[in-house]
Simulated assay, not measured.
Amino acid sequence: MTSRFVPYATTPGRLFGQLISDIVVVVWVLIWLFVGMAVHSAVAIIAQVGQQVEVGANGIADNLESAGDQTRDVPLVGNALRGPLNAAGEAALDIANAGHDLDTTASWLAWVLALAVASPPILAVAMPWVFLRVRFARRKWTAITLAATPAGQELLAMRALANRPLAKLVSVDDDPVGAWRSQDAAAIRGLAALELRAAGIARRI
């Protein structure tokens, strides 16, 4: 894999800055993921209560139904006892349904609140970071591709003349513009190297 495929600078200072920014973004994302998980866990407790109510109420309803069935054999009062027991079983089923609804709603709400809490701060940092990293990768790819051809080196040298500080330009040649116009190969390579370094690429051409 050549360096053009790696989305990092090869100049030490810029590479250090990129690594620090990566660490900061990762730590930031992890912090808010933990916050989101904490919110989810807190709301999920309500869902667990609903689940427990559902299970318990269903058990009571089953027991009441079984007791109602057994009262058939009781002489004289069997039917009288069966009616209240069945009614109580139906009430227990209503409670079980309410517990199920609470479980379902709280489980859904736990994820919604977790995403609502964690997503905005994560996206606020991650989106600019991704944009800057993609822009750097594209600039690096373009610069390395241009440096591979003589015409591309001339274009990089011209950009250096337009964008780099005068002190750096004269460090390449006392008359950088004249050297570029006269197609001085050494000066063009030096100017192109300045532009590459500005793009985060430490490369001799």
Rank of each mutant, 00 (worst) to 15 (best):
W180F: 15
A61N: 05
W28Q: 06
V27T: 14
A126K: 01
T142L: 13
A57T: 01
G13F: 06
L146C: 00
L30R: 04
N63A: 15
E90M: 08
T149N: 08
T149D: 10
L146R: 10
N86R: 15
R133D: 05
L146K: 11
L194C: 06
V43K: 03
S182D: 15
G89M: 05
F34W: 12
N86V: 13
L123Q: 05
L169F: 08
N63M: 09
G83R: 13
A147R: 01
Q70N: 09
A116G: 14
N79I: 11
L113C: 12
A162S: 12
T149S: 14
I122R: 01
G50C: 02
E154C: 02
W129Y: 15
I201N: 04
G190T: 04
L113E: 06
V24T: 09
V29Y: 00
A92D: 05
P176T: 08
G99H: 06
N79K: 13
Q52D: 09
A124N: 02
A44G: 07
V130G: 00
L81R: 04
P12M: 10
N163P: 00
G17R: 14
R181L: 12
Q51A: 15
G50Q: 02
G78R: 06
G200W: 09
T71P: 03
L155N: 09
V130H: 04
A116L: 15
I20M: 14
V6H: 06
D62P: 00
G17T: 09
P128I: 12
F34H: 06
V39F: 11
M127W: 04
A80K: 11
A147F: 01
R203E: 10
A38M: 14
R181P: 00
Q70H: 04
F16M: 13
S182G: 08
P12W: 09
T105F: 10
A87N: 14
G36P: 05
A91R: 12
V172W: 05
A92G: 07
W141N: 12
V39A: 13
V25Y: 03
V49F: 11
S3H: 11
W180C: 02
D69W: 04
A110M: 03
A160Q: 07
A143D: 04
L102R: 04
L194T: 07
E65A: 12
N97G: 14
I144W: 02
A106W: 09
L64G: 01
V6I: 15
V170W: 03
P120W: 06
Q70V: 07
A92E: 07
H40V: 05
V29N: 02
A110Y: 01
L166D: 11
Q70T: 08
A87K: 14
A202C: 02
R204T: 15
P75S: 12
R197H: 10
L155C: 02
G17V: 03
V55Q: 12
V35E: 07
A160R: 02
L155S: 11
W111S: 13
T10N: 06
V6W: 07
A148C: 03
A106K: 10
A87W: 04
W111Y: 13
Q153A: 04
V74L: 15
A92H: 04
M1C: 09
A96N: 03
